[in-house]
């Protein structure tokens, strides 16, 4: 199989990352100061409703979603940056170990079930 859960994880991670790195000033805002880039008009400042009211168009939902992803990822990245390097490496090692163990457990259990 080419497409599995691991690939889906990569796909989702890269897509979320691509949303997070969209630059508001260069790309998303409708009127850009620099005209080298294509303005799309999806910035949070460009068409925000009065504070407290929520617009319900598709475009405003998209703007909200992009803003939500960006703010949440900024918070996560800030927390990761606060770690020391050895704490970060330790956590990453644990994660990799856990994934490997789960994979092996799946394979072993399926082999045992199919041979018995």
């Amino acid at each position: 199989m080419i497409f599995g859960l691991g690939r889906l994880f990569y796909v989702v991670l890269l897509l979320i990352n691509s949303i997070a790195v969209l630059s508001e000033e260069r790309f998303l805002r409708r009127k850009t100061t620099t005209h080298h880039y294509l303005p799309v008009g999806l910035g949070s400042q460009s068409n925000q409703a009065v504070f407290g009211q929520q617009e319900n168009t598709t475009k405003s939902k998209l703007v909200q979603l992009i803003g939500a992803v960006q703010t949440l990822l900024r918070k996560i990245v800030r927390n990761i940056n606060n770690l020391y390097w050895w704490q970060f490496r330790f956590i990453m090692m644990l994660v990799v170990l856990l994934i490997t163990i789960i994979k092996q457990l799946f394979k072993v259990s399926i082999n045992v079930l199919s041979t018995s």
Binding site: M1, L5, L8, K107
Partner: peptide, 18 residues
């Protein structure tokens, strides 16, 4: 192949989630 059980489950769940 018994491994196909595992691979098929993984790929089916991935398509499902997508």
């Amino acid at each position: 192949d018994p491994e196909n059980l595992y691979f098929k489950l993984s790929s089916t769940l991935a398509f499902f989630l997508l």
